[in-house]
Amino acid sequence: MNIGLDVGSTTAKVVHMEDSEVIFSKVVPSHRWIELINDGQDDRNIVSTGYFRKRVPRFAAITEITTASLGARYHDPDVQVIVDIGGQDTKVIDLRSNTFVINDKCSAGTGAFLELAAHYFDIPVGSLGELHSRATKGAQINNTCGVFAISEMISQLVGGFSMEEVIYGLHQAFAMRIAQMVPPANTVMLIGGTVQNTGIVDSVKNVLDSKIEVPGAPQLVNALGAALYMERLDDSG
């Protein structure tokens, strides 16, 4: 069995693979990552990734850039560009040229930006997609700075827009920020926990001309890639 362990800034994920098939997976808050490792489990079949990759038991540690590349290709061997929207950063990987960019300098376009908005409305971040779907129009949010976007959001509420319309507008602003990082491509795969928010996926589809793919469990793609890397190490002896 090959194990991929992704301990990120917000959640920890594990994927167990056998013969290139996923046989088990689990997600817990990051600080509870230890629950993903069985007592006495041999760490010689674990590849770790994520922010805490070098702080957990492992045979090898690799970055999320490599795991995302391997995991996304498992879902679609022809995918050209990956957008990994994490809790604290966003990574865009162009598999055609082996290049990547990471936005980790501002919160706009990261899960932290959405958490800020959800916190303001005092709603679970998981409900943003549902609220987005209820809006028939969006409030205009121009700012790509997370802090100023919240100020603008409040102004739009004062101006009479509903919470749903403001959330729709925030998702559009979020998608515009992401789009600035994405090169022209036929296929773009969105991965990461934030992609479970259907409002984000809809907004990215609105602003990019590419075919947008979302794998079944987008938050597990890096753990999957880590398990595939372990498989590769196993095969090479």
Partner: peptide
């Protein structure tokens, strides 16, 4: 970034 670039050049 440097670690990921190194992996990318070596692994991919």
């Amino acid at each position: 970034r440097l670690e990921a670039f190194s992996e990318m050049l070596e692994v991919m």
